[in-house]
Simulated scan of single mutants.
Amino acid sequence: MRSALNHAVRAARGVRWYVRELTDESAYDRYVAHLRAERADADVPSRREFERMRTDRQEADPRQGFRCC
């Protein structure tokens, strides 16, 4: 019984990881980890600020093409 529960938990964690990577939900977590590793004294932006910076950067990049929405 315990083994089956452990397998189910591991499978659920794997699915969660996959979905977060697929949707790029984990980008903020990776950015914060990178920022803390490179510059420990740097201010960490909020999730909202990070998403705004990322969106602005994507819209300013001419390789991204025109986005209407």
Rank of each mutant, 00 (worst) to 15 (best):
R10M: 14
C68V: 08
R30C: 02
R54Y: 02
G65F: 05
L35P: 04
G65M: 00
M1Q: 15
A12R: 08
V15S: 10
E25Y: 10
M1D: 15
L35T: 02
D29L: 11
E49C: 06
S26R: 12
V19W: 08
R47I: 07
T23V: 11
C68P: 00
D43G: 09
E59Y: 08
R67G: 07
E59T: 08
E59N: 09
H7A: 13
V19Y: 10
Y31H: 01
G65T: 04
T23W: 03
R30D: 05
G65V: 00
G14Q: 05
A8W: 04
E59H: 07
N6C: 13
A33N: 02
A12H: 05
R57C: 11
V44D: 00
R63A: 09
R52E: 12
P62Y: 02
D43Q: 12
L35Q: 04
M53C: 08
L5W: 10
P45W: 06
R13E: 15
S46I: 03
Y28C: 03
A40Q: 03
R52K: 15
T55G: 01
W17L: 11
M53Q: 11
R13Y: 14
A27R: 13
R20S: 14
G14F: 02
P62H: 00
E51V: 09
G65C: 06
T55V: 11
A60C: 02
R67N: 12
Y28I: 00
V19I: 15
V32C: 01
P45V: 01
A8K: 07
H34A: 15
T55M: 10
L35R: 06
P62R: 03
W17D: 15
D41S: 11
L22N: 04
F50S: 01
V9Y: 05
